[in-house]
Simulated assay, not measured.
Amino acid sequence: MTEYDCPTCGRVFDSRRGLGVHHSRVHDERLPNRECDRCGTEFYAESARAYCSEACHDAAVSYEGEANPNFSDAKEQTNCDICNATFEYYPSQKDGVYCPDCVETAAWRDPPQRTGVAHHSWSGGKLSVSCDVCDARIERYPSQIRGEVVLCSRNCHAEWLSAAFTGDGHPNWRGGGVGDYGPGWRGVRKQALERDDHACVLCGTDADELGRNPDVHHIVPVRLFAAMPALAVRDAHTLDNVVSLCPGCHRRADFGHVSRAELRWRAGIRRWNASAVGGATV
């Protein structure tokens, strides 16, 4: 049976582990458990280590020249972007841009302006094109021409928008109107204006403030009547289905921002003939 003697007090142990525990607890020092690959010195380390110190590590392991994992046939040459001088740099470093002299004088902080063909986005300069609205000749960089439409001014842009987003070109297009409102419309319109005192039933703006009569809005849209085979457009022209609105409130109602119930309540419409639109609750 192998015995292990304590090097400090001479006590004998039957295992290396017991000796190690004794020495660290009693003598407050850990026994060596490794040997340096370079100098042979015994030392203690919790994890695997080949060298007892950084000095032995640096002496044994060299990262110079070809021993460096980033070695790429030593230095290369390039030209400075500022002074065009030739200088050397290591390939493992960032590609050389400025020479040491320009770096020393901080000239790299104010690099030359890259315009024209020297600019990385150069694509031939400005092009002569025609405005798609007024046909005026204008110059534009290729990067400024986006899409198929070229416009020279805000006025032409507004005119193009008006033409391109009208009717079936508008994203909210739903098939257009129903044509002429037909018989009965003029009469019920006049009655609605008289009932509402020629004023908007929502905000109270009257004809004097508008400079004209308010709009007369169909609470249940005419298109719903036109879409039902059993009904006709003229069936929408009833006094309990129309209210007077200023242009602003008319837009709100058209976009559904005002409920039909509120429109009827504001106009004093107490009864609504639902059977006129097939018994629908509207």
Rank of each mutant, 00 (worst) to 15 (best):
A55P: 00
P111S: 04
P221N: 02
P183V: 15
G211R: 10
Y51D: 03
W173T: 03
G176F: 12
C156Y: 00
C52P: 04
A60D: 08
Q191F: 00
E104I: 02
Q77L: 11
N213G: 08
R11F: 03
E35H: 07
Y51C: 00
G182E: 08
C200K: 08
A207V: 10
D135S: 09
R17F: 06
V242D: 04
A48G: 02
L19C: 08
Q77T: 15
P214R: 03
R109K: 15
F87H: 07
E3A: 12
V97E: 14
G182D: 10
S128V: 10
S162L: 04
L210W: 14
A232I: 03
E42C: 01
P112H: 05
S121T: 06
S53I: 06
P32K: 09
R195H: 05
F43T: 10
G179M: 12
R212Y: 08
G256D: 04
R16W: 13
Q113M: 10
G256P: 01
F165Y: 15
V216Y: 09
Q191A: 15
Y98S: 07
R260M: 09
V282E: 14
V133R: 00
C9L: 04
H57T: 01
V150C: 05
G18T: 01
C152M: 06
D58I: 01
A164R: 14
R234D: 14
R146T: 06
T166V: 02
W173P: 03
S15H: 02
T86L: 03
D58W: 06
N172W: 04
N68A: 15
A60I: 01
G211V: 03
C200Q: 13
T205D: 00
T238R: 14
G40K: 04
E88G: 04
D208V: 12
D197L: 11
F255W: 07
V222C: 03
W173V: 02
E159N: 10
A85M: 02
R195D: 06
L19S: 06
Q113W: 10
S53W: 13
